[in-house]
Simulated scan of single mutants.
Amino acid sequence: MQNISILGCGWLGFPLAEALLAKGHAVKGSTTTEDKLIELESANISPYLIHTNDDIISSEFLNSDILIVLITSKDIESFKRLIGQIETSSIQSVIYISSTSVYPSSNSVVTEESPTNDSPLAQIENLFRRNTSFQSTIIRFGGLFGYHRKPGNFIRSHNTIPNPEGFINLIHQDDCIGILMAIIEQNIWNETFNACADSHPKRADFYIKEMAKVDRLRPILDPESENTYKIISPKKFISVLHYTFKYSNLMDY
């Protein structure tokens, strides 16, 4: 059993906490909403009200073995403060959830060795990567979907699918949780992984199918699109973690 803190118990963090509890771990979870504290506590997740721009984060929340950072903030100064507090805590290992948006569209296959853009997210990754006080593993997730987050609702503007000849880089919530559990169980630290399904259908094919599922018929393929894209390769983490996807073929989802 390990003590694990999840900074951001939302759409992904809450079911991840439940999965960790089922494996016998003790879990602390943070939220920015007071009303959700009761929900966390009722699920046996020790609840904490934390905003990432707070000058001081609860030392008790950081009194764990592993910290999973699952927030969307790109405030570099807030992360510098957070890392400073982790350095003086009992945290030994950190999983930082990043995004494949750190890669520019290159109309090519992208691996962990591909150049990233000069974005706040890439800079925050480097803050964790260069720190020597604790171990860090960085996960660059593709687009997240599953359960009430339905891909058919992702296209909103005038029912028009942009970049219809581009390719999809998505990952289901269940596979996100499976990958994070595998990293913890196998003690895979000081690594950077791309994580998305190992199938990449064309955007037009995928979204026409998914929009029909939510009764959004006859989408328009944007004729003005430049059709820039990137195809995110998940081969590294599949090899290292020996991971088998639950939702591999996105056209079968």
Rank of each mutant, 00 (worst) to 15 (best):
R156V: 13
L82N: 03
E165V: 00
S133P: 05
S93M: 07
T132V: 12
S73H: 07
F134T: 07
I68P: 00
I76G: 05
N107T: 11
V102T: 01
S105R: 09
P164R: 11
Q92T: 15
F79R: 08
T132I: 13
I91Q: 07
S119T: 15
G166C: 05
I68T: 00
S89C: 12
F134H: 11
N159G: 14
K150R: 14
P164Q: 04
I97N: 10
N131D: 13
S64A: 15
R140H: 12
S119F: 10
T160Y: 05
R81E: 03
E165Q: 14
S101Q: 09
A182G: 00
Q135M: 13
T160H: 02
G166S: 13
D175S: 08
H148S: 12
S106M: 15
N169L: 09
I83R: 00
I155A: 06
T72W: 06
I168P: 02
R129Q: 15
N159F: 07
I171L: 12
D118R: 01
G146K: 01
F141Q: 07
H172C: 08
I139W: 08
E112C: 00
T111N: 09
N169H: 06
F145S: 08
I57R: 01
T116F: 06
I95C: 09
D175C: 05
Q173S: 12
F145T: 04
Q135A: 15
R81G: 06
S93A: 14
F167W: 09
P164G: 09
I83Y: 12
D118M: 05
P162N: 09
E112H: 03
S101P: 06
V110K: 00
P162L: 06
T88Q: 15
E60M: 00
N153A: 12
N169W: 00
P115Y: 10
N153R: 12
I139C: 04
S136P: 10
S101L: 08
Q123K: 15
D75L: 09
T111F: 13
G146D: 00
Y96M: 00
P104K: 08
S108F: 05
T160Q: 14
E112N: 10
I124W: 02
F79L: 02
M181A: 09
S64Y: 08
T88C: 11
P162T: 07
Y147C: 00
S78D: 07
I68Q: 01
N153D: 14
I83T: 06
Q123P: 01
K150H: 13
E77G: 05
L67H: 10
G143D: 06
N131P: 09
T88P: 11
S106Y: 04
I56T: 14
G166D: 04
R81S: 13
L127T: 02
I139Y: 01
N153Y: 10
R156H: 11
L67I: 10
S136L: 04
I155T: 05
I171F: 03
D118I: 07
T111K: 04
S136G: 11
S73V: 09
I68M: 07
S133M: 14
L180R: 11
I138P: 09
L144G: 06
I138Q: 07
F141I: 08
R129C: 08
P104T: 01
F167I: 02
V69G: 01
V110G: 01
I91F: 11
S133C: 15
K74D: 15
V102G: 01
V109D: 13
R156Q: 15
S64M: 02
S58R: 11
D174H: 02
R149G: 02
S64G: 00
L121M: 11
S73A: 10
G143S: 11
